[in-house]
Computed example of a mutant assay.
Amino acid sequence: MDKDSAWLMVGFIGQFFFTSRFLVQWLASERQKKSVVPTAFWHFSILGGVVLLGYALYRRDPVFILGQSSGLVIYFRNLYFIHRETRQILQCPKIAS
């Protein structure tokens, strides 16, 4: 496999991960019968975003690079909020009844 074909495969793999996040979100929403965004959505967003950013850098596509890099900031920020909220819940003292 030549270099361009290998990078094309990387691009498709990144797109697969990125698209998988919607499948995860849809299935979670169907299970709960309401719109939800599971943590896995953000993990797939990061995985797909990182792979696609690598592909965009290889292609030297400034539009694609800007889109993926700015998206990664948002995905990591959302995971930070989830982690912070989970940590606060776990550290909250139990109220005696």
Rank of each mutant, 00 (worst) to 15 (best):
Asp2Val: 04
Asp4Arg: 11
Asp4His: 11
Ser5Leu: 09
Ala6Asn: 02
Ala6Thr: 02
Met9His: 10
Met9Ile: 03
Gly11Asn: 01
Gly11Val: 05
Phe12Tyr: 08
Gly14His: 03
Phe18Arg: 00
Thr19Ser: 15
Arg21Val: 01
Leu23Ser: 09
Leu23Arg: 01
Leu23Cys: 02
Val24Asn: 04
Gln25Glu: 07
Trp26Leu: 15
Leu27Cys: 04
Leu27Val: 11
Ala28Cys: 13
Ser29Cys: 10
Glu30Gly: 04
Glu30Tyr: 04
Arg31Asn: 11
Gln32Arg: 14
Lys33Glu: 15
Lys33Gly: 10
Lys33Cys: 10
Lys33Ser: 11
Lys34Ser: 06
Lys34Gly: 06
Ser35Gly: 10
Val37Thr: 11
Val37Asn: 03
Thr39Ser: 08
Trp42Tyr: 15
His43Ala: 07
His43Phe: 13
Phe44Met: 06
Ser45Met: 07
Ile46Met: 02
Ile46Tyr: 03
Leu47His: 04
Leu47Val: 13
Leu47Asp: 00
Leu47Arg: 01
Gly48His: 03
Gly49His: 02
Val50Asp: 01
Leu53Trp: 03
Tyr55His: 08
Ala56Met: 06
Ala56Phe: 02
Leu57Lys: 06
Leu57Ser: 06
Val63Pro: 00
Phe64Cys: 04
Ile65Met: 09
Gly67His: 14
Ser69Gly: 05
Ser69Gln: 15
Leu72Tyr: 12
Val73Asp: 12
Tyr75Ala: 08
Tyr75Glu: 04
Phe76Glu: 03
Arg77Lys: 06
Leu79Pro: 03
Leu79Glu: 02
Leu79Asp: 08
His83Ser: 08
His83Pro: 00
Arg84Pro: 00
Arg84Ser: 11
Glu85Cys: 10
Gln88Ile: 02
Leu90Gln: 13
Leu90Tyr: 10
Gln91Asp: 14
Gln91Met: 15
Cys92His: 15
Pro93Leu: 08
Pro93Cys: 14
Pro93Arg: 14
Pro93Gln: 12
Lys94Gln: 12
Ile95Cys: 11
Ala96Asp: 15
Ala96His: 13
Ser97Asp: 08
